[in-house]
């Protein structure tokens, strides 16, 4: 790996944003309607690549606004047991990053829903960041989120992805200082993924009390949409988010449905039902933007 020095000496190149893509258009449409968005995560290749194709199409049909495709990784340190097991299942039949990109191109022929690749850094690094970005962009992916890549190590990555019109989505956490939030806000595009609590991914019953304060703190530094994730599984979680954020991210709850289902078709219908209910809660919840005269 090179020393993460941007190829272009022009500092504006590294911070330039991709042209208004599907993600931005989607959030603009939601803001117009004053509607909270729903971002859905599934691990690609679980139970199989064909199965994932059916499941993602079902999620899109059920009304999810953005879909994150998890790239399975052998050592998912940020994930709880549900997504760890999904990764193991996907890896057991050899799902690779190249397979997931191929899945994106199959999906792109059938749906216009924004697709985000959600990965750990090493598989991307081994493919080569440029080769990865070329393949992901031509497959029709809209953005990339790398769990273990923070702005400090991401200069080259951002430059390469932005040059191909891919959004680079970064995470902010409850432990992020104001200085870090400012840096993250300057690097993220598409949306900012706000981690609702310290910890790994996974469904929880309760909602963290300090989340509204964290969202307000993040909001000071950026106008990009805020999506809140980690621990969201219930319609009540989603409706609470209405006044706080622009979108809710649901992941482990969907992955758990897939794990329970006897086959891909039943997984697709279970996930369809779950997303439909969550999206209804999102429509009924009021978006932060509808009560915010600044937008």
């Amino acid at each position: 790996m090179s020393e993460a020095v941007p190829a272009s000496p022009d500092p504006s190149a590294a911070s330039s944003r991709p042209a208004k893509g599907r993600i931005a258009q989607t959030f603009a449409r939601l803001a117009e309607k004053g509607e909270l968005g729903l971002v859905a995560y599934v691990t690609a290749g679980d139970p199989s690549l064909d199965g994932s194709e059916k499941i993602v199409l079902a999620i899109a049909e059920a009304g999810a606004d953005v879909i994150e495709l998890g790239v399975p990784f052998s050592d998912p340190v940020a994930d709880g047991p549900t997504i760890q097991r999904a990764s193991e299942r996907a890896l057991r039949h050899g799902t690779s990053l190249a397979d997931v990109i191929d899945l994106v191109s199959r999906l792109r022929r059938q749906t216009d829903v924004p697709l985000v690749l959600f990965s750990y850094f090493n598989p991307i690094l081994q493919m080569g960041i440029e080769r990865f970005a070329d393949a992901a962009a031509s497959a029709g992916a809209d953005g990339v989120l790398v769990t273990d890549l923070t702005p400090e190590e991401a200069a080259e990555y951002r430059q390469i992805l932005h040059a191909r019109g891919l959004d680079t989505i970064f995470l902010a956490a409850p432990t992020s200082t104001d200085a870090r939030l400012a840096q993250i806000a300057a690097c993220t595009s598409g949306f900012l993924y706000l981690i609702s609590r310290t910890g790994v991914t996974g469904a929880r019953d309760t909602f963290p009390e300090d989340l509204p304060a964290l969202a307000r703190r993040a909001r000071q530094f950026t106008k990009v949409p805020l999506a809140v994730g980690f621990g969201i599984s219930q319609p009540s979680h989603v409706s609470v988010l209405g006044g706080i954020a622009d979108a809710a991210v649901v992941g482990s709850a969907l992955v758990a449905e897939i794990e329970k289902a006897p086959d891909a078709d039943s997984a697709a219908s279970a996930v369809f039902e779950r997303v439909r209910i969550l999206k209804r809660a999102a429509r009924e919840g009021i978006s932060r933007r509808s009560s915010d005269p600044a937008h």
Binding site: E3, D148, T150, E153, F170, L171, T175, R180
Partner: peptide, 20 residues
């Protein structure tokens, strides 16, 4: 934190402030 090209800090954001 770098030894030639090696080293660095590749962790989830939640751990960045504690590492700092």
């Amino acid at each position: 934190g770098r030894y030639g090209p090696y080293g660095g800090r590749y962790v989830p954001e939640t751990l960045m402030a504690p590492l700092e």
